[in-house]
Amino acid sequence: MRQTPLVLLVFSLFHSFALSLFAQPKVEQAMKKQGLVNVQDVDPTILVELKYSTTDNFVGKDVYGDLTRAYMQPMAARKLAEASKYLQAHHPGLRLLVYDAARPRSAQWNLWNALPNLSERERRKYVADPREGSIHNYGCAVDLTVATKEGRSGAPEPLDMGTKYDFFGELAYPSREKELLRAGKLTQKQIDNRQILRTAMRQGGFTPIEYEWWHFNALSRAKAKMAFRIVN
């Protein structure tokens, strides 16, 4: 019996969908099942370099494995797109560069256990207790910086923010910038670069935190907990 072109088309589409589904990492499948979205599907101009999918992080090893895309709750991804739109309208040569977004709780434990020499109070400044869950675990927080669209090498180049991502210390504290400027530990240019990021993120509806210039919340933890489930 000859197959009609319609039957062949339907089979081809189903086969392509099945292949793409199984090609996705399991953690991405879980995130999508919970309704999270790839931020680059919402705004393709947003740059992504998940630091915990590399060894360039405070743990010194790949924590995320095959997760290399940034996922967030749809409302948070839309806010990020608004921040990106504002940034490009006021600084056409700059782009948001995402370092971390939705984070599985299993990875949260890895980060928490990587700081055994700090007191629990100090640890909580930098890594949320996995038993309570980070706002990252709900897909409502993002770590990021601002980068030039094209640097000297042709690739995007992050602006100088005074410290690296995941720097544990006062130099990274937004709350101490004026004091650090007076002490000569931060330059005005570095603070101005941080302000570019903060202004764009606030315009998108995000809230900064006291201890990390790179971290922004789309919702409080209490509201995220009421609205969403933790990504496991």
Results as ranks from 00 to 15, higher is better:
residue 214 W to L: 00
residue 14 F to W: 06
residue 94 L to K: 13
residue 73 Q to R: 15
residue 139 G to M: 02
residue 54 T to K: 14
residue 190 Q to W: 02
residue 77 A to K: 08
residue 184 G to N: 10
residue 37 V to I: 06
residue 92 P to I: 03
residue 58 F to A: 10
residue 113 N to R: 12
residue 92 P to C: 09
residue 151 G to E: 07
residue 178 K to Q: 12
residue 168 F to P: 11
residue 206 F to M: 11
residue 175 S to K: 07
residue 60 G to R: 11
residue 189 K to Q: 15
residue 123 R to D: 05
residue 10 V to Q: 13
residue 49 E to W: 09
residue 226 M to S: 15
residue 193 N to P: 15
residue 28 E to R: 07
residue 91 H to I: 00
residue 138 Y to L: 04
residue 66 D to S: 12
residue 153 S to T: 15
residue 186 L to D: 13
residue 198 R to I: 04
residue 84 S to C: 11
residue 65 G to M: 01
residue 128 A to R: 12
residue 126 Y to R: 07
residue 200 A to E: 12
residue 211 Y to V: 15
residue 94 L to G: 03
residue 180 L to Q: 13
residue 69 R to T: 03
residue 98 V to I: 15
residue 153 S to F: 08
residue 49 E to T: 09
residue 111 L to H: 06
residue 198 R to V: 04
residue 67 L to E: 10
residue 108 Q to R: 00
residue 44 P to E: 03
residue 203 Q to F: 05
residue 4 T to I: 00
residue 122 E to H: 09
residue 96 L to E: 13
residue 124 R to S: 14
residue 145 T to L: 12
residue 199 T to F: 02
residue 34 Q to C: 01
residue 203 Q to M: 11
residue 97 L to S: 01
residue 46 I to K: 12
residue 139 G to W: 02
residue 222 A to Q: 14
residue 135 I to R: 11
residue 142 V to E: 03
residue 185 K to V: 03
residue 198 R to N: 05
residue 82 E to L: 12
residue 167 F to A: 12
residue 28 E to T: 14
residue 28 E to N: 10
residue 24 Q to M: 14
residue 50 L to K: 03
residue 143 D to S: 10
residue 227 A to Y: 03
residue 207 T to C: 00
residue 187 T to C: 07
residue 217 N to L: 06
residue 105 R to Y: 03
residue 190 Q to E: 15
residue 170 E to W: 02
residue 171 L to W: 03
residue 105 R to S: 10
residue 70 A to C: 02
residue 127 V to T: 14
residue 24 Q to S: 14
residue 102 A to N: 03
residue 118 L to V: 12
residue 74 P to H: 01
residue 197 L to P: 11
residue 62 D to L: 01
residue 9 L to C: 06
residue 42 V to G: 00
